[in-house]
Design a protein around this nucleic acid. Structure first.
Lengths: 114, 114
DNA sequence: ACTCATACATAGATATACGATGCATAGTAA
DNA sequence: TTACTATGCATCGTATATCTATGTATGAGT
């Protein structure tokens, strides 16, 4: 992880749901995809992702199904549900609010003229 | 707090240092200032801020000094140090990296044409 | 045979913000 | 006089979420 891992807290759910909104994926694939798309900023650990997927499934945000691929072990795919889509929408709004607020604090000039 | 409190994790330090970069402040003032500037998004609790200030002081990022004001109890002001300024610079860069990476994941289109 | 990448999973450690609470001063309303 | 509110600093215990470490298993390449 290239950034303070604490920064990540609270944003893992939105990222996972966002990935699954595009297409159904299996856990390992999500880890690789996130690392690739963020240019190595996000490197989810199994200990982070798998428990998260299980809890999202328990909450009905996503559903899982096993699928076998030729030569290789079976993969557990996850698909986003309607509830998950609606939650993602809320979380996107929340992220916008948060991001704007932080930027507001950080970019405010020390002194104001006029 | 208007957003998921977990989102806040990892960004408290940068916000406090950012405030103190502009001017020296006392704890209570920081809480009010953050709430005002973020339009109520950030409402730091005493249980969050004071321990944070103490640890930042222990790390040499900030220094404190008491100052009495007429009519009213003394206030403990905090001033940012050179080390704090340099840390703030790093954390700003870290925030930029994080923010860009999250946005990259969130704004990616589900399907790409061309 | 051995190593590496793939693939899912869990237990325990750690970090951090919050809720609750306490103490103290000053102004204001009942 | 009393009570409430805002101000102002502080700490303790709790909840939550991520990471570290570890385990199991398969297939490909050397």
């Amino acid at each position: 992880m290239k950034v303070n891992k604490e920064l990540l807290k609270g944003s893992t759910v939105i990222m996972v749901l966002s990935l699954l909104q595009r297409e159904s994926m299996y856990g390992y694939q999500m880890i690789k995809e996130l690392e690739k798309e963020s240019q190595g900023v996000f490197m989810f650990k199994e200990g982070t992702l798998y428990p998260l997927l299980h809890s999202l499934e328990a909450e009905g945000m996503i559903v899982s199904y096993w699928e076998g691929n030729e030569g290789g072990r079976k993969r557990k795919y996850y698909r986003i549900t309607k509830k998950g889509t609606s939650t993602l929408k809320e979380k996107r709004q929340e992220w916008e609010t948060f991001r704007s607020a932080v930027d507001q604090i950080l970019t405010r000039e020390a002194f104001i003229w006029g």
